[in-house]
Design a binder for these strands. Structure first.
Lengths: 117, 117
DNA sequence: CAATTACATAAACTTGAGTTTATATAAACG
DNA sequence: CGTTTATATAAACTCAAGTTTATGTAATTG
């Protein structure tokens, strides 16, 4: 589980928060420190890893570094997940079947009661 | 990044391999150790975490423990990813536009050459 | 040019995850 | 029963990730 692995990169909550920020808008390091309440060196070190994994790009503006998102390295995770997506969809389907069945039985019961009265 | 976090759980390569095995078929601990070439205590400890995170279920059969997959805890990851999926789709769209444009230009160029000869 | 702003990086520390080795438990088997 | 099979768990070790503190480096500003 080295940090060259995209799964380990997104396992860190602060890094996900950084990505979530960048998903909304490009940001400087200072923007991120203020928005997330993290120390500047910490944000910088996380950004370094995010850079190395290809998830963010930098652009210089005088002293500032403007970071922006590149989500494409996440496609691998998405592909891995897709195999499991089928599983839980089937599970949800079964749950819906179950609920539908319950609902139908309940409605039939109510119909019986009204006719009975 | 505690191990009670589903992202950290799936960050471990061996754990993902275990899940991939269970995606294909339910397995005993021994099955997994042989298929993955890991020590028995290691597999057991990973399975413990997978159990605690709700990703696997156990069923006893005499001395054996048959593990099976429950993918539903992964829905959260999937939902988080979905926000980014739009991003890279747009990126792919742009790439396709680019390639289409190249292809069109190339075809036009070839048409010019044939008429020119 | 001195002071400030924005950021990166190095050093040192802490903690916990992954792993191995050794041991406990519990069922099957002879 | 004693032994083997299947698994869990405890103890101990290693190493690297996350964090803080301190410092370096550009570019900006007064």
């Amino acid at each position: 589980m080295t940090l060259h692995d995209i799964y380990a990169i997104i396992a860190e909550p602060s890094r996900r928060r950084i990505l979530d920020c960048l998903l909304r808008s490009d940001s400087t390091v200072k923007d991120l420190t203020e928005e997330l309440g993290l120390s500047q060196p910490l944000v910088s070190s996380h950004l370094r890893l995010l850079r190395e994994s290809g998830l963010v790009r930098v652009q210089s503006d005088a002293q500032r570094r403007i970071y922006s998102l590149d989500a494409s390295p996440l496609t691998g995770v998405d592909e891995w997940l897709s195999a499991y997506r089928d599983k839980w969809n089937r599970h949800v389907d079964k749950l819906e079947e179950h609920l539908d069945r319950r609902k139908r039985l309940k409605e039939e019961k109510q119909a019986d009661e009204t006719t009975g009265e």
